[in-house]
Design a protein around this nucleic acid. Structure first.
Length: 725
RNA sequence: GGGCGCUUAGCUCAGUUGGCUAGAGCGACUCGUUUACACCGAGUAGGUCGGGGGUUCGAGCCCCUCAGCGCCCACCA
C-alpha cells in the first residue's frame, strides 16, 4: 500500500536517506554489482585539493562524471568511479602558510617535521569535509577505493618511476636558468608562470665605446658580454674584440659577440649579456660559451643583491634598480630613458615577477616521451574532446621543454636522492644515489656513510601524472588488469598540459598503454554575465549552499543542461531554481499517478490500444535520442531531451489527454491506460536518473511496478539506440 | 609575435556530414483557482543567424574577406 506523497520533494530530508540506501546496497563498488554487470568501465576522479571545501567547479565535474558513471552502470557495465583527494603540494603549502600567518606564526619558526605533521592533520580534516560534500552532490563513487595522493602505494610508485626514468637517462640533474619566484622561494616549471603586460623604463647606458639598452640596470654586475647583430655595420668593428665598460663598482672587460637573435632596430642594437639573470641572455651564453665568461650570479634566492654587487649588496631588486640608475646618471653613464611596455614572466600564484635563477634541479628529458603521446592521439587511441583542445594538445607537444620537477617546498613527496658528500668535491661532479625511497646505508662507490638527502620535493604534477596506473595498482593489481586503460578522463581544459598530457606521457612510458580512451574537457564555470566567479567579485555560487536550498538534482541539472562542451558553463540562481521546479514537477506527476491508481489493481496484463502504442513509441524515440546523445558525450542535449519529454510531453500532453480516460466509466480502459502510464513513467525516471539521481530514485521507489530494483542498477531503456563503441 | 576559438530571440545557449515555416530554457506580455503541480497550465510577442562577397537548385551550416570579442602559448633587451 502506497502512502500518499506530500506535495513536494523534501530534498533536505530525503537526499541523505537516499544516499545512505545507495551506500548500503554496495553497488558503488563494481565488485558488488549484480552479475549482469560484466564489461568494465572506469573513471578516475580528478582528486580535489584537500585544502579547501569544494567550489562550483567541483560540482561541475561531479555532475558530469557521476552522470557518466550512472549511465554506464545502468547500461550494465561494471562501473568504477574511483575517488581521490590531492595533497596538492605547493598549493596546500601556500594555504597553510596563510593560516599560520593569521595566527602570527610562520613556517620558518618550525621544524620541517612539525610543519609537515600540521599540514598532514589539516588535509586529513579537509578530506572528511570534501568526502561529505561529494556525497551530498550524489557522487556514486566507490569509497572503499578512495585514494590520497600521499598514500604509501602512490609514493612507492612515484619513487619507482623516478628511479627507472633516472636509470633510463630520462631524468637528469643539471644547473640551468630556471623560473624562480622570490616570494615563494621555489622553482617552477614553464607551466606555473604567466605573462603579464607591464610598463617599464628602458635605460640607455654608456657601455665603453658603445651604448646598450636594458630594463634591468641592477643586473649590470652580472654582465659577461655584449651581443650585436652580425650584420650591424655600426658594431662590426667590435665583434670578437673586448671592450671595457664602467660598471660602477668596477671596470670590466667584456667580449663583443655576434648573434643573429639581436634585433638591430631595438634599443641601440647592442645588448648586454647577463646570463645568470635573463633567459634570453642565458640562451645567448649557451651559444657563445667558449668566447665569453661564465654566468655571474648577483641576485640571491631572497631576491636581494648579493656580495658581488659591492655597496648594493642587500638591496631588493627594485630598490637596486633605482639606486643603480641614479648612480649611473651621476657618472654620466645614463644617456636617456624611454617608457617601455612589454610582457614579463610572473608567478601564477602571487603575480610577482619571476626571477630567472641558476640552480641545480632534476629535469625530465621530455622529448622521448612526446612521440608516443602524440601518436596515441593522432591514431585515435585517445580521443580528446572538444576537438579544438586536441589541436592545442598537439601544438603544445611540439613545443615542449624539459620539465623541472624539483620544488623547494616542504609539503610534498620528497625526492629519493642522496648526495655522497665525499664523492662530491665540486659543483660539477655531484654524486647522487637514487633509491626506492629508503635512505641508502652508504655510497656504493666510496662506501662513505655521509649522505645528504636532496631537500626538495617533487612537482605535484609529477606524481599526479602517474595517477591512473598508481591508483589501480600497477603492474600486478587486479584493478589494473580490469580497469586500465580507463574509459574517460573528465577534467577542466585548464589542466590539459599540467595533468592530462603528463598522464598520457607517463602512462604510456610506464605501462605501454594509454591511461584513458577519451578525454572530456569541461570549461570554467561563469556567472550569468559570463564573469569568472571569484570571492572578491562576490559572484560565487556555493555548491553546498545551493544543495541545501534547492537540492543536488537541481544544481546538477543546471550545470549540465545548456552547457555544451568547449564553452565555459554559465550558471545562475534563476537557472537552478528552474530545475528545482522540475523536481517538483516530477514529484507531482508521480503523485497524480499514485492518487489515481491506489484503488486499482495494477499492473494488468496490457492490451494496449492505438493511443497507448503511440505513447509507447514516442517514449522509445525519446529514449533512443537520449541514449544517442550520451553515446556522443552530448550530455547537455541528452539531459534537455529527457527533461523536455518528462515535462512537456508526458506531463503536459500525455497525462492531460489521459485524464478523460482515467476519469471515464470504462474500467478496463482506465486500468490499461494507467498501467501503461506508470510503465512509461518508470522508464522516464530511468533516463533522467543519471542527471537527477535523488528525486528519480525516490519516486521510482513509490511506483507500483513488479521486480523493481534500486533505480541505480535498473536497466537502461536503450530504445533502438546504437550500442556503445 | 604564434596558435585556437567565438559572434543565432532581451539574456544564456542548441542547431554534428548544406534541405526548416531557425529551436530550448530563462525573461516579457495576455488569459486561466479543470481530480497532480502557481516551484502550475493555455497562449502571444520577439531573430535581415556580426558585416560584405562567393560556391550551390538550395547556406546559420562550405569558401574568401572585413569587424568585434575571448582564450592559450611565447627569452626581443
Amino acid at each position: 500500500m502506497q502512502k500518499e506523497l506530500p506535495k513536494r520533494f523534501d530534498h533536505k530530508k530525503l537526499e541523505p536517506l537516499i544516499y545512505k540506501e545507495w551506500e548500503k546496497s554496495g553497488y558503488f563498488n563494481p565488485d558488488k554489482l549484480p552479475a549482469r554487470h560484466k564489461e568494465p568501465f572506469c573513471i578516475l576522479m580528478p582528486p580535489p585539493n584537500a585544502n579547501d571545501p569544494l567550489h562550483i567547479g567541483h560540482a561541475l565535474f561531479v555532475s558530469l562524471e557521476d552522470t557518466m558513471t550512472r549511465y554506464a552502470r545502468m547500461r550494465g557495465k561494471k562501473a568504477l568511479w574511483l575517488p581521490g583527494m590531492d595533497h596538492a603540494g605547493f598549493e596546500t603549502q601556500i594555504v597553510y602558510e596563510k593560516k599560520l600567518q593569521k595566527q602570527g606564526r610562520s613556517r620558518l619558526e618550525m621544524s620541517r617535521e612539525e610543519f609537515y605533521k600540521e599540514v598532514w592533520d589539516y588535509t586529513q580534516k579537509n578530506r572528511d569535509t570534501v568526502r561529505n560534500q561529494l556525497k551530498k552532490l550524489g557522487s556514486s563513487c566507490d569509497w572503499s577505493r578512495e585514494t590520497f595522493t600521499l598514500d604509501a602505494k602512490i609514493i612507492k610508485t612515484v619513487y619507482k618511476t623516478f628511479k627507472d626514468m633516472h636509470g633510463a637517462g630520462l631524468i637528469y640533474r643539471d644547473e640551468r636558468l630556471i623560473n624562480y619566484c622570490v616570494k615563494h622561494q621555489t622553482a617552477f616549471s614553464e607551466l606555473e608562470i604567466k605573462h603579464k603586460e607591464q610598463d617599464d623604463t628602458l635605460y640607455f647606458i654608456k657601455y665603453g665605446p658603445v651604448e646598450v639598452a636594458t630594463v634591468r640596470p641592477e643586473t649590470i654586475f652580472g654582465d659577461t658580454a655584449v651581443a650585436v647583430n652580425p650584420n650591424d655595420k655600426r658594431y662590426k668593428k667590435y665583434i670578437g674584440k673586448e671592450i671595457e665598460a664602467d660598471l660602477i663598482i668596477e671596470k670590466r672587460k667584456l667580449r663583443v659577440v655576434a648573434d643573429k637573435e639581436v634585433d638591430p632596430k631595438f634599443g641601440t642594437g647592442a645588448l648586454k649579456i647577463t646570463p645568470a639573470h635573463d633567459a634570453a641572455d642565458y640562451e645567448m651564453w649557451l651559444r657563445h660559451k667558449k668566447d665569453i665568461g661564465a654566468p655571474i650570479q648577483t641576485i640571491g634566492k631572497d631576491g636581494r643583491l648579493n656580495e658581488k654587487t659591492g655597496k648594493y649588496k642587500g638591496m631588493k631588486i627594485l630598490e637596486a634598480r633605482e639606486a643603480v640608475a641614479y648612480d649611473l646618471q651621476k657618472r654620466g653613464l645614463l644617456k636617456k630613458t624611454e617608457a617601455y611596455k612589454h610582457a614579463v614572466s610572473v608567478c601564477y600564484k602571487c603575480e610577482n615577477t619571476i626571477e630567472p635563477m641558476l640552480m641545480k634541479q632534476w629535469f625530465v628529458d621530455i622529448k622521448p616521451l612526446t612521440s608516443p603521446a602524440v601518436d596515441a592521439v593522432k591514431k585515435g587511441k585517445i580521443k580528446i574532446m572538444p576537438p579544438s583542445q586536441r589541436k592545442v594538445y598537439l601544438h603544445w607537444m611540439l613545443n615542449i621543454k624539459d620539465w623541472n620537477i624539483s620544488r623547494q617546498n616542504w609539503w610534498g613527496i620528497e625526492i629519493p636522492a642522496w648526495k655522497c658528500v665525499s664523492c662530491t668535491s665540486t659543483n660539477e661532479n655531484e654524486k647522487w644515489i637514487i633509491t626506492d625511497g629508503e635512505k641508502p646505508e652508504k655510497c656504493p662507490e666510496c662506501e662513505n656513510t655521509k649522505l645528504e638527502r636532496d631537500p626538495d620535493v617533487f612537482d605535484t604534477w609529477f606524481s599526479s601524472g602517474q595517477w591512473p596506473f598508481a591508483t589501480l595498482d600497477w603492474p600486478k593489481g587486479k584493478d589494473f588488469k580490469t580497469f586500465y586503460p580507463t574509459d574517460i578522463m573528465e577534467t577542466g581544459y585548464d589542466i590539459l598540459f599540467f595533468w592530462v598530457a603528463r598522464q598520457i606521457m607517463l602512462g604510456l612510458y610506464k605501462t605501454g598503454k594509454v591511461p584513458f580512451k577519451t578525454v572530456y574537457l569541461h570549461g570554467l564555470v561563469r556567472d550569468k554575465d559570463r564573469q569568472k566567479m571569484s570571492k572578491s567579485k562576490g559572484n560565487v555560487i556555493d555548491p553546498l549552499g545551493t544543495v541545501e536550498e534547492y537540492g543536488a538534482d537541481a544544481l546538477r541539472m543546471a550545470l549540465i543542461v545548456g552547457n555544451s562542451i568547449g564553452k565555459d558553463p554559465v550558471i545562475s540562481e534563476e537557472k537552478i531554481r528552474g530545475y528545482r521546479n522540475f523536481s517538483t514537477k516530477l514529484w507531482n506527476v508521480t503523485r497524480f499517478l499514485l492518487l489515481n491508481s491506489k484503488d486499482n489493481k495494477l499492473p494488468l496484463s496490457p492490451e494496449y490500444d492505438a493511443t497507448d502504442k503511440k505513447i509507447l513509441a514516442e517514449f522509445d524515440k525519446t529514449a533512443k535520442k537520449v541514449t544517442d546523445f550520451i553515446e556522443k558525450y552530448e550530455y547537455w542535449n541528452a539531459a534537455e531531451t529527457a527533461y523536455h519529454y518528462a515535462w512537456h510531453t508526458f506531463a503536459d500532453k500525455v497525462l492531460e489527454n489521459s485524464k478523460s480516460v482515467i476519469t471515464g466509466e470504462n474500467e478496463k480502459n482506465k486500468i490499461t491506460r494507467l498501467s501503461m502510464l506508470i510503465h512509461v513513467w518508470g522508464q522516464t525516471l530511468k533516463i533522467l536518473h543519471p542527471f537527477a539521481p535523488f528525486v528519480t530514485e525516490e519516486l521510482y521507489g513509490h511506483l507500483p511496478l513488479k521486480n523493481k530494483k534500486l533505480l541505480l542498477v535498473e536497466e537502461w531503456p536503450s530504445g533502438n539506440a546504437k550500442k556503445n563503441k
